[in-house]
Nucleic acid binder design. Structure first.
Lengths: 205, 205
DNA sequence: ACCTGAACACCGTTCAAGT
DNA sequence: ACCTGAACACCGTTCAAGT
């Protein structure tokens, strides 16, 4: 009886490395096997099939993520802080969101932040119905924003550049100063913070 | 000289049908060929390779989408109307967003709505810098919201159901009435409209 | 308990060859 | 100009067989 060549953990480790270094689409059973120096079918013994492997990867990653820590004096400030922390957390683990999104477990990823928001909203003294709307609206705004950031960033070098798209804008009734501004690249950090603040202000009014 | 068996258009038609009926992942060159009753390689002659095929599909779909029509009396109402129309448009073409998202051309899909928003924001009398923030914040909110809706809807029947997730909430400092409310299913239409209104209110203040 | 090898049914893509 | 067939390098998965 000789020691096992791989284990569930070593398979997950290698899979995680593959995803982090080469992206989600590089994760194939055969490449994984080659990486581990083992026959493809050995992997199946340890983790089941590909879908199960990904599920276990998602579980592991979600466990690592950790809670978001709110900071600030007023409930309003703390709600905004949770939103910013959530975005930062997702940004710090770009491979995670691909994995989680592709496997349809976004709702679970958002749960810690949802709870943190619920605490702050409760502290702000809102009743259940109005409070739930605030929690969910903020949560949706933040996560949706990050998903879109990802989608747009992934875009190829656009054939028509952003500036060109707005060159003819005044001909179709768009104010020139506005068109010029919209032709510039977006400062995502600034836009995120401004829109989050506006949303929270609108919700707490 | 006999007539061609397929054309660029017939290939795109068949590909579109495949995506609409069986989803994006069902679109393979070989299946497409089988559907058309032709050798796989014939497709390559007409559309290039798979990536090029998808690009042409995206172009065609974006051309079909049409503009969003604003309605309402005040600029504020019209901005909200554009946001709602954009979400409806994306919802009406669920296969489109998969295609566009997967191919990184989300920014182009948003352009008509962005222009409609720019007109309304200009009419509201905001200057360039502030107006651009409003346009982009609303646009990001709406599209991000829809992307997240998609992600969450795709989630498998969660092992822990939503209600269970909030059962122990009061033990970790969450107000019971709020926890009960968060355990209920989300009314997406209502939440979308409320959060959009709040965002616009916060932005126009 | 743990691993291999062969086999099956799929992929996308290239290339020489046919009409 | 338009299409075929063979070939190559990939996939995920199952199954019988080995130790």
């Amino acid at each position: 009886m000789n020691t096992p060549r791989v284990s569930r953990e070593s398979v997950l480790d290698a899979a995680m490395r593959l995803v982090e270094e080469q992206g989600f689409e590089a994760l194939s059973m055969r490449r994984l096997a080659a990486e581990l120096g083992v026959a493809v079918t050995a992997i199946y013994w340890h983790v089941g099939n590909r879908e199960a492997l990904i599920a276990q990867l998602v579980d592991r990653v979600l466990a690592q993520l950790g809670d978001v820590a709110p900071a600030g004096r007023s409930p309003r400030q703390r709600i905004i802080a949770v939103g910013k922390a959530l975005r930062r957390m997702i940004h710090d683990h770009p491979h995670v969101i691909a994995l989680v999104y592709e496997h349809g477990r976004t709702a679970l990823m958002m749960l810690p932040a949802e709870r943190a928001l619920a605490r702050e909203v409760g502290a702000a003294g809102l009743d259940g119905r109005r409070g739930a709307v605030v929690v969910r609206a903020v949560l949706h705004h933040v996560v949706g924003y990050v998903l879109l950031e990802r989608a747009v960033r992934r875009g190829p070098e656009q054939h028509p550049t952003t500036a060109e798209l707005w060159r003819d804008a005044d001909e179709i009734g768009i104010e020139p100063g506005l068109a010029r501004e919209l032709g510039r690249p977006v400062d995502q950090d600034r836009l995120f913070e401004l829109s989050l603040r506006a949303l929270v202000d609108g919700l707490l009014r």
